[in-house]
Structures are given as C-alpha cells and as structure tokens.
Amino acid sequence: MVEPLLQVESLCAGYTAAVAGPFSFSVGRGEILGLAGPNGAGKSTLLKALWGGVRVFSGAVRKAPGLQISHQAQGFDDLRGVPLTGRELLALTGASEAGLPPWLAGRLEARLDRLSGGQLQFLRLWACLAAPADLILLDEPTNNLDKAGVAHLVDWLGKAHGEQGIVLVSHDHGLIDAVCTRVVSVGEGT
C-alpha cells in the first residue's frame, strides 16, 4: 500500500477550545480531497490544524517524513503602496511562472497594487499552487476570483498532479464536485 502524505486520526482542533472534529481521513499523492460543509462547521480550522496553525486538542495528524506543505489562506494583507512586482511575489514562494494564464503572465512586471482585484487574487493563489510542495491546502480559493480565474483554477486542478496531494475547502459544491477525487463532509463529524 502507498504511504499516505497525511493521516488524520480522531482530530479535534480549535483556538482556545476544540471547535472542529473529531475527524479521521487520509490524503495520498494524486488525490484532491474536498472538505465540504456549511459555514461555521470548522473547515478552515481543520485545514489549519493539518499544518499546526491551530491547537490540536485530541487525536493526531501524522505527516509523511519531510512533507512540504503549501497553504493558501483566506484573506490577504493590504498591499497598497508596497512596491512589489508579480514576478517578485512568485519568486518569494519559489512558484513557477509556467502555466500562468496569459492574462496574468504578461502583467508580472507590474506592481501588485496596479493589478485588478481578480488578477491579484489569482497571483496570490498561484504563488501557493505552484510553490514546491507535496501537499497543497486551499482555503476557499475561488473567493474574490473573477470568472477567468475560476476557470483557470478548475482547469489546473483537473490536470493530473500525480506527485502532489491537494486538500480543498470550499462552500462551492460545484467546484468540489468538478475537481475532487474524494469528499469529507465536515459538518457531520466524519
């Protein structure tokens, strides 16, 4: 049997008290695992618990040795006024420029505060998607994306990622149904 990238066992996690769990599941290479559930069910908390961003109250998260995790979080600091180009942003995470949509590839020399909201959001998402990692954690990646961005994301997720595992949190059932190879329902204490 192939060793999973991540094994979650009876996990309960939260900040000052457990707000999510217990959950048990595993993620392997080539899988896109969707975490589906209503708002407030603890999907984002669970995602953060996978890399240690919140406190684990009980259970365990077992990672493959040397596992590299890339986490795309919701929200973004205000970038207005900071002189950073798109190319410089991608270089920070080591993200490849190959595969960028044409409407963004030609704008990499522009400052981030000169990009449209949709372009900036996709660029930020891409900096996590295309960074060197074994496991990619995506938290509501379609938020603030325009139609072109969502289409390119769906296209990218639909392609084979044999060496990587992806965990996707989204309230968008259409996205989860379209791209995920397996779904865990968070609101139901799976």
């Binding site: 890399w51 961003g53 995790i69 986490h71 950073l84 410089e88 920070l92 995470t93 996590c128």
Partner: peptide, 18 residues
C-alpha cells in the same frame, strides 16, 4: 530579504513547512 518579505506576504509560509 526573502524571509522578511515572506513573513509579510505569506505569514504562514514557514510554519506550514515546520
């Protein structure tokens, strides 16, 4: 430079990698 910029733009980058 890179750690300082990453800490500003992707605060979770290093923690997610342990």
């Amino acid at each position: 430079s890179r750690p300082l910029l990453l800490a500003r733009f992707f605060p979770e980058f290093y923690r997610a990698r342990g």
